[in-house]
Design a protein around this nucleic acid. Structure first.
Lengths: 128, 128, 128, 128
DNA sequence: GTGGTCTAGACCACA
DNA sequence: GTGGTCTAGACCACG
């Protein structure tokens, strides 16, 4: 995996360490990161994104305690062993649920009908 | 409006002042609070929920700068007049754009196809 | 004079009593209010604009102490005696100076050239 | 940027936090503060001017919600990236509209002709 | 009565 | 180190 795969937004409301953990969770669930694959070192990620190494370290530590990553002595962090190359669609949809709930709540606060929201989202999903 | 209509959770991760602003936004969008309606005074809300008046004041001030409330000098805060019965659909959709982009990015990180995502969102939007 | 001649904006940053005094000053300077003319009673103004009588009273009191109005026993407030039917153009322009300075400062903060500002103002002044 | 660049007048009618926000707006509009530049910390400004940190924090928070500043977590506040090198002239003129309407109304209350008003304003705008 | 401002001091999350 | 949040209590302007 390359450090550039991660997207860091230093001004987002989410703290940086959680942005990293969340992305790792999704990249692993989708199979873009496979079991045994080595992650870029803390220094590499920190240097590439100009963030504090401690922040990356904290994210890796949380990911490890969550079972996403494993610490191999001398090799660094690798993606933990999983039952398959990625989660089922239902499983991945479950990981998206919080974002869906958030969007849904906001759309309803704005009194938006379902149609225009779905239409716009389809546009965004159709052009990756 | 009565101070008891607001729900304050002092232990939530969201700060109290934002809980208040968010609820006001919701209550106004849903029509439970109508233009011109008077809000309970800062001291009333603070007393009822046993929180500091300044915290309530901060929420009211933010809601005012957001255009939700208006300050009637010496009288208190009232729900602001909505410009022309609410924003246009295009305008409201524009306000939703950041959340849509966020969801879209996460769905693509999960390598989810558009169909299941749209389907689930439609469910959520259909049952307000 | 009729109470409807005054324009009150309860949500403006300027306090109401000063809005009244300032308008009286301008209406007298322009000759729209002439010496000896009777002003609407405190109750009348307060009732018409749905504001607190004390606020109107305070404004009248300040206008009196400024020499704009005089309190005639049994008649109420009247416009004070002045040397002419209104001030000279230079004098009235002087009264506008604070607003001109304010506008000028804001235009410069916005890095706006003089031309578009003057053009827009001419439009506004041309269609009273 | 240095904390001494800010000028605080504790006796002015404008509250301190707004003095700070207004100055930041001016400094950014005039280019004295450029995108990405780091601001002095809340504690630094508070210490230098002998005011309460919360007052500075309030100013920074408002400036952030206005889009003037961005918060870099754990690092501090920086001048926000300007979208496309500044607003268009039409956009900036639109921001000036309220002040223009205010001036226009006052000029008409003074029954001033357009010419002398425009002439004086041109003088003011010509000597920044 | 209303909200606004400021202070002093505490505790917390994040980097 | 950074800013964020909350409290307790004071004083003020406005109506």
């Amino acid at each position: 995996m390359d450090a550039s795969l991660l997207i860091i937004q230093p001004t987002a409301s989410d703290p940086i360490y959680r942005q990293i953990v969340d992305q790792l969770r999704r990249l692993i669930a989708s199979g873009q990161l496979v079991s045994g694959e080595t992650l870029p070192s803390v220094r590499e990620v920190a240097g590439f994104h100009a963030i504090n190494p401690m922040t990356v370290s904290r994210a890796y530590g949380l990911a490890e305690s969550e079972g996403l990553l494993e610490r191999l002595r001398g090799k660094g962090m690798v993606v933990a062993a999983r039952r398959g190359g990625g989660d089922s669609e239902a499983e991945r949809l479950r990981l998206l649920e919080p974002a869906l709930l958030d969007l849904s709540r906001k759309a309803q606060e704005l009194e938006l009908a379902a149609a225009p929201v779905l239409e716009r989202l389809q546009q965004l999903l159709g052009t990756p």
